[in-house]
């Protein structure tokens, strides 16, 4: 799975959480919580779906460094292929 594909998955999850938003129009270094008005429940749901769809279990301690789209995609890319190269679904 490449970064482009990961980004598409992230977009889809964000769209599900904030249906009125257009995640693809976000700048890569924009703060997601602020831009999409994401609260702690949304964030938790986001991480749950990431886990479900990409198989990446993000420890709570890492939440702090995942604030922008580029940070998230980079973080996931470094883990997703390691964890599971077969069907993530």
């Amino acid at each position: 799975m490449n970064e482009e594909q990961i980004q598409q998955v992230v977009f889809k999850i964000l769209k599900g959480i904030a249906p009125e938003s257009e995640p693809s129009s976000l700048a890569p270094d924009e703060n997601l919580r602020r831009a999409l008005d994401i609260d702690s429940f949304d964030a938790l749901n986001f991480f749950i779906r990431i886990h479900e769809q990409l198989g990446v279990n993000i420890p709570e301690a890492d939440y702090g460094e995942l604030n922008t789209l580029s940070e998230i995609v980079r973080y996931l890319a470094s883990r997703v292929n390691v964890v599971d190269s077969t069907s993530p679904r």
């Binding site: 702690s40 429940f41 938790l44 991480f47 749950i48 886990h51 279990n57 993000i58 420890p59 709570e60």
Partner: peptide, 17 residues
Amino acid sequence: LESENQKRSIKDRILPV
């Protein structure tokens, strides 16, 4: 909370509220 959440998978984690 931190020690509790370390024991849990993401979907079982407890929010501070």
